[in-house]
């Protein structure tokens, strides 16, 4: 591991100021991803600014019935919060489907959003990877890519990258239109979560649109007035990353879809909002056939790799099954 200086700040503004003066530094949340990547030599910060205890660890009510989650709230506490369980079950379920009890105790909300891909070439410094070492190539494209992306990849050129974003929590937050509150050297801004994570484009080294030194302080969840649910397919029953996951919320009245939110995990470089399917569904019947047709409308654009074609039908089936479950609970 590269040597680094460990810094604590009195408050969030102090942490931002410290990192503004350290171009090679990084914020430290629970460390469950960053410390791991430092051991592997993938992350090499020369300064760590500890923000785990100085970002808020509270969940507060917003006037509209939504919630504000401090960036320092541990994943375990967020999943167990009564209000989250009642109003945003999709979020509790997503968190509980991820990692382990020990990891969720330590991992923070801010850190979870910014965890990096689990691509095996990214985490092995002896392998080519455009994300870790721009210009070195993408080992996964023709290599081991069973659990890589099927949508929105960059399939050629120096930006080639077919990695997925690993967070379960972020998929649920995308489905409920969360807003990420950020504090930077130039002040505060609010980033809709759909604009936080990015596709690889021609620069896979950047996972998000955040700039160096921008601190996530909180995440706002606007009120959600209808049932929601998270469903995750993985290679073992527990403690494994998603092959594909779906976060969904659905309002049905008299058998007609009035409102629907759908996001997929495990399919792209960012949590994937399933917009084509959402649009196809609203105003139509809440039936298995309609759900399957809508999922197909989205997944027709998929560009699976040699060994991950299975994700296309898996994603379709998960969408259909999860929406049918939501129809059931809406009765």
């Amino acid at each position: 591991m590269r040597e680094f200086r460990y810094e604590q700040a009195p408050d969030a503004a102090g942490a931002v100021a410290l990192l503004a003066g350290a171009p090679g530094g990084a914020f430290l949340g629970g460390g469950t991803n960053l410390v791991d990547l430092m051991k592997l030599g993938v992350a090499t910060p020369d300064v760590l600014v500890d923000v785990r205890e100085l970002t808020s660890r509270e969940i507060t009510d917003l006037p509209d019935g939504g919630l504000r989650i401090g960036a320092g709230v541990p994943n375990a506490d967020l999943a167990a919060d009564r209000r989250v369980r009642e109003r945003f079950p999709v979020l509790s379920q997503a968190l509980l489907a991820g990692a382990s009890g020990q990891l969720r105790n330590r991992a923070t909300t801010g850190g979870n959003l910014l965890q990096r891909t689990r691509c095996g070439y990214f985490t092995d410094v002896t392998k080519p990877c455009n994300k870790r070492a721009p210009g070195s190539g993408c080992g996964a494209l023709e290599g081991v890519h069973r659990n890589h992306a099927i949508l929105g990849q960059t399939l050629e050129g120096p930006g080639t990258c077919v990695a997925t974003h690993p967070s379960d929590m972020a998929v649920a937050m995308l489905a409920v239109d969360a807003v990420v509150r950020v504090l930077g050297p130039d002040g505060e801004r609010a980033v809709p979560i759909a604009e936080l994570h990015r596709l690889p484009g021609d620069d896979p080294s950047r996972d998000t649109t955040l700039r160096h030194g921008e601190l996530i302080t909180a995440i706002d969840l606007p009120a959600l007035a209808f049932p929601s649910r998270y469903r995750k397919a993985r290679e073992r029953a527990s403690f494994a990353f998603a092959l594909v996951s779906v976060a969904a919320a659905l309002r049905v009245e008299d058998g007609v879809v009035r409102d629907v939110r759908l996001a997929l995990g495990g399919v792209a470089h960012k949590p994937w909002r399933v917009q084509a399917a959402e649009q196809a569904l609203v105003g139509g019947p809440a039936t298995e056939e309609a759900f399957a047709a809508a999922a197909r409308a989205e997944l027709d654009a998929a560009t699976p790799l040699r060994d991950n074609r299975f994700k296309v039908p898996l994603a379709r089936n998960l969408v259909v099954r999860t929406l049918l479950d939501l129809v059931e609970v809406s009765r």
Binding site: Y6, L28, G31, T32, V35, D50, R52, L103, N105, R106
Partner: peptide, 15 residues
């Protein structure tokens, strides 16, 4: 750690 289970291999001692 203060009664909560954690993986000590991912916790830096200085924190």
């Amino acid at each position: 750690l203060d009664g909560r289970r954690v993986n000590s291999c991912l916790v830096l001692a200085v924190t």
